Every structure is written in structure tokens, then in C-alpha cells.
Computed example of a mutant assay.
Amino acid sequence: MSDISATDLQGFIAVAESGHLTDTAAILGIPQPTLTRRIRRVESSMKANLFDRGSRRMVLNSRGRAFLPHARAMLAELAEGSSKIARLMDPERGTIRLDFMHSLGTWMVPDILRDYRSLYPAVDIRLHQGAARELVDRIRVDATDVALVGPRPPEAGEELGWHQLRLQRLALALPEDHPLAREGATPVDIRQVKDENFVGMLPGYGTRLLLDRISAGFGFSPRLVFESMELTTVAGLVSAGLGVALLPLDDPYLAPTGIVLRPLDPPEHRELGLVWRADAESAPPIDQFREFVIGGV
């Protein structure tokens, strides 16, 4: 089949529908010998004559009738593929695969999408939500185009492109009746609660990666009594007295009640940013979206 072109298929279908070689060549605006060669290439590829040829007409035989719907399907598939490629190359109508962490689904992601879609309403944005480590792995295997994650992945700068968007100071979340809560919002050393129960995110989630790194740096492993996918759940369970937790201090949609947030001393931060494959081929819709996010957040 590799020797059949789209124009060969178009010629075959046109003659099959009209039954006239000369008239069809005139309609297509090509010489009759050119159309004849196209028909011959199709028949040669099929290893069979597809027409019964008379003095004035060309009528499909049983083999031609069997092949005709497949020829139409092949042309339709080519047209659809061409349309999809054109769409991928159109920055105003292309497809963007965007991944993001659960905790960004209440503020950063809606803000970005609202502003971007106001400029490019026809863009096709496909979303996926998950843990930070999972999202970075999806970038690496080309399962998505860009991801909003934190903290900065270790592969950034080599295998992955990275741009920091926000830097949130981390705090120790305490129930209101905890002894350390009496000192208000002053900085606190996390080692003061190293022997207490912690409420944390599941392994692979951004804030859990930070908790593991910070606690390991001080030589202890937090005793986790519950692991969640949502920071709001973590905050709620801390307020219920289930334990203490690590939370970002200035998350605009994390409105803690019944807890006190004390920034860590020494200071620690949650770095939020956009990540993409450094070796990804240039694609106008994705390039434009990435530049928009980097320039606007």
C-alpha cells in the first residue's frame, strides 16, 4: 500500500462514482493519461483489476466494489489525521495536556484556566490531577505536556525544564489547645514535636516529600496517624486534635479554623512551579501556554 498516494485514491473513487475516465479527468483538471496512471497504481497495489472496462465506461467489478469502502475510509482517516496535526500546530485551537497537584485545584489552576480561556476560548485543555511525584513521572514519559508541581523535582535543569511560580513558607500546624499554640504565630523548631503524632499527605505528594526531607534532615521520622490526598483534610484533622502537620503558611484557599500555624525555624519553603520535558518538540499551543503561565502567575 505504500505506493498508493491520496491522489491515487481520490482518482479511483472519482472514476468509480462517475464511470467515465475522460469526464472525470476533466472535472479533476488533469490529463486523462495522468488519471489512468493513478488508477493503474491502485490496481497494481491491489494486484487485481478493479474495473470492467468498456469502450466508453469504466464499471467497478466485484473486486472494485469490495475495495471502494476501504478506499473511502483510508481517505477519511488521512483527512482526520491531517486535521488533528493542523489542530496541534494551531496555538488558538490546539490541545494542551495539563497536570496539577490536588492542592492547586482550588486556586492556581482555576485562575490560570480562566485567564487563558478568556484569550483562547477554542483551545482544548485536558486535565489530570495527582501526586507531585506521579505528575513528574508523567512528564518524563510524555503522558502530559506541562505540570504544576512542588517541590522542585530533582531532575529539573537536566531532563526537565522548570520555572518557579510561587514560594510559600512552611508552617507547623497545631490544634488550638496544643501547648505550643499558646505562643501564637512565632517561628517554631519542628524538632519540638518530633515525638508527637503527625497528620500528613500520602507518599509522593508534594507536602509529604517536604515533610520527609525536613524530618530526615533533623534525624527523625514522623509518626503518621493518617495520610491524605488533600491539604484541607490534613488541616481539619489537626483541628480535631488528631496530630500536628506541615502546611503552607499562605495558601489562599486553605482557611484553617481551630488550628494555629507557626512558621518553621529555620525557615523552610514550598516551591511551586511549572515543569516540562526539556527535550520536548516545539508545539505552538504548548509553547504559548507555557509562556503565558510563566509570564502571568
Rank of each mutant, 00 (worst) to 15 (best):
L21Y: 00
G204A: 03
W162M: 07
K47N: 14
G11E: 00
M229Q: 11
V146M: 14
E92G: 02
R56W: 05
S83R: 14
G81H: 11
V293E: 10
D177A: 14
A235F: 13
L254N: 08
M1A: 14
G130I: 09
G105E: 09
R140T: 13
G150V: 02
S239H: 03
A245M: 05
R133E: 15
R72H: 08
L21H: 02
Y253F: 12
L224M: 13
I13T: 08
G273W: 01
T186V: 15
W162D: 01
A156C: 08
L172P: 01
M58H: 15
D177F: 06
I30E: 09
M58Y: 14
I96E: 09
Y116V: 09
E281A: 13
V275N: 00
S62A: 15
L88A: 12
L88C: 07
S282H: 04
L264Y: 01
G130M: 04
S82R: 15
P175Q: 05
G217I: 02
M101Q: 10
L246C: 01
P151I: 11
D115T: 11
A16I: 13
R126G: 00
D189Q: 08
P153V: 06
A280Y: 00
G204W: 03
R208W: 12
H70P: 01
R133N: 11
E80A: 13
T233V: 13
V199A: 05
R93C: 10
V225R: 01
M74E: 12
I4H: 02
P69V: 04
P252L: 01
A6G: 15
G217K: 00
Y120T: 04
P285N: 12
A71R: 10
A147C: 10
K47F: 06
V238K: 04
R65D: 07
R126Y: 00
A66C: 00
I286C: 05
D250G: 07
L246E: 00
M201L: 15
P266N: 04
M229A: 14
R169H: 10
D137E: 15
Y205M: 06
F218M: 14
A255I: 15
S221W: 02
I214V: 12
